[in-house]
């Protein structure tokens, strides 16, 4: 059926069903049609969205709002809702549609491949703010996830300040950049409670976080040079993955004893790359309680990290919960708590 359909004249209930069945990007298109279509979406949309709204400033020239899909923990398909891109010289914007957002007329066009609207701006940061306000108002939801680089760090602050709902996931990723002390402290202090935090950028030299570590279900830090034993002992996480730390085997021994005594009670997977691993030091004082298991076991954590545990020491806590302590050459120590828990990315 390709003939016209007077959507705004169908009865209330089926109209609401149609709105509920529509994809977020199509709803954004529909909202631009008229004030009435905009208010119909606002009042009729009842179903929760399939996914969480992610705001992402990928580079200086483009930003996205999307309901991302994860496949085995990876962002495979970008379900974009609306994007903001920078004006470039060789495109004729006059021939494009103009819609009203945030009280201003904005040039837009359809991304034919993926079916979402691209809006064009002189300044994509301003554009991202306007489209974020527009979409969160239209769908009456808050931003859940944010992916920012060093240059778009301010978006984390902006999103955090404009809503009461805490952010669920924060990716602060910039492979070549060094974060400032203020930025790291801001994320660790003011983005809580947070379910997932990934930080993939270098810390400033000699940075330490001396306060109580925030409760973060899934922590993934690529440059963990700043992590201290005190940080480990105040953590309360489920999946903790730390790369490039300067923690020692003695530190890990203390952490293991801390876990055996009931510390970090929700822990399922701890994975840290140390300077070097000495299993005797790690298990110092615990060998009587440890059972060596030679078999290879496959372990998947609640947040989807998978590890092969080829040999390892099983240690049992007083309440009967068992963890496998596994050394993965050359410098990684893994603590995997049984039983495995099925993961759920959304």
């Amino acid at each position: 059926m390709t003939s016209p359909f007077p959507l705004l004249h169908v009865p209330y209930l089926p109209q609401g069903r149609i709105i509920d069945f529509m994809d977020p990007d199509a709803l954004v298109s529909l909202s631009f049609c008229s004030q009435k279509s905009h208010s119909v979406i606002k009042t009729q949309r009842k179903l929760p969205f399939d996914g969480h709204l992610l705001v992402e400033e990928s580079d200086k020239n483009s930003s996205f709002l999307s309901f991302p899909k994860f496949v085995f923990g990876l962002l495979r398909k970008r379900n974009c809702v609306l994007s903001a891109e920078k004006f470039v010289d060789n495109i004729n914007y006059e021939s494009m549609e103009s819609v009203k957002m945030g009280g201003q007329h904005v040039r837009v066009e359809m991304d034919c491949l993926n079916g979402y609207i691209i809006s064009y701006w002189e300044n994509t940061t301003d554009g991202l703010k306007v489209i974020t306000e527009y979409v969160t108002n239209l769908f009456n939801i808050d931003i859940s996830d944010i992916r920012a680089s060093k240059q778009s760090f301010h978006m984390i602050e902006w999103v955090n300040s404009r809503q009461k709902t805490p952010l669920r996931r924060v990716w602060y990723v910039d492979w070549n950049a060094t974060s400032s002390e203020e930025e790291l402290i801001y994320i660790l202090k003011f983005c809580r409670p947070m379910s997932e935090l990934s930080m993939h950028l270098k810390p400033p030299q000699n940075f330490r976080f001396t306060e109580k570590f925030p409760i973060i279900d899934c922590l993934d830090i690529i440059h963990g040079e700043w992590m201290t034993l005190d940080n480990l002992l105040t953590m309360d996480g489920i999946d903790i993955v730390l790369e490039k730390t300067i923690l020692t085997s003695r530190d890990l021994n203390v952490f293991l004893k801390h876990w055996l005594a009931g510390g970090c009670p929700r822990l399922k997977l701890f994975c840290a790359r140390l300077g070097s691993v000495d299993m005797f030091q790690v298990l110092d004082g615990l060998m009587r309680n440890a059972v060596f298991v030679e078999n290879s076991r496959y372990y998947t954590s609640p947040f989807g990290y998978s590890r092969v545990l080829s040999g390892g020491y099983d240690i049992q806590r007083e309440d009967g919960v068992t963890a496998t302590v596994h050394y993965q050459p050359p410098r990684t120590l893994i603590i995997a708590v049984w039983p495995e828990t099925p993961y759920n990315y959304n």
């Binding site: 059926m1 390709t2 016209p4 359909f5 007077p6 959507l7 705004l8 149609i18 709105i19 069945f21 529509m22 994809d23 199509a26 298109s29 529909l30 631009f32 049609c33 008229s34 009435k36 279509s37 549609e97 819609v99 837009v108 066009e109 359809m110 034919c112 079916g115 609207i117």
Partner: peptide
Amino acid sequence: RIARMLRGKNTQEMIKVITL
């Protein structure tokens, strides 16, 4: 079916389809 019909339409096309 109607929701599917509205997929991938820009605003002008949408206006035509929903007869605004």
